[in-house]
């Protein structure tokens, strides 16, 4: 409708253990003005040296889809739980891979 809002975003990395190594997956969480009643909007923020691996939980824009977000119910659902779910999910299916250095 053309309206704009100023939102709070949290940017950082999530420590993920994949095949025995720990990687710091860069993510950004956008908190809506209706937070915590609505889940944050989450993105993977690949650096220039990374490429997004689309899959069940990540689309081509890096947007993250998780049951935890879809079934968000405060106060049980909160950021710490969300990040813990990301650590598990990304440990099985990393959302980003480093670009092959030609």
């Amino acid at each position: 409708d053309g309206s704009t809002k100023e939102l709070l975003s949290l940017t950082g990395t999530v420590p993920v253990n994949y095949r025995g190594n720990v990687y710091n997956i860069p993510i950004c969480l956008w908190l809506l003005d209706t937070y915590p009643y609505n889940p944050p909007i989450c993105f993977v923020k690949p650096t220039s040296a990374m490429m997004i691996k689309t899959g069940k939980h990540v689309d081509a824009n890096g947007k993250i889809y998780l049951p935890y977000l879809h079934e968000w119910k405060p106060p049980q659902s909160e950021l710490l739980g969300l990040i813990q779910v990301m650590i598990v999910v990304f440990g099985e299916e990393p959302p980003v891979f480093s670009r092959p250095t030609t």
Binding site: G12, T13, R19, Y23, I25, K45, A49, F97, S98
Partner: peptide
Amino acid sequence: KSPTPSAPAPVSL
């Protein structure tokens, strides 16, 4: 100091 972002090497299929 926040950790430096890193990602696994692509798995060669």
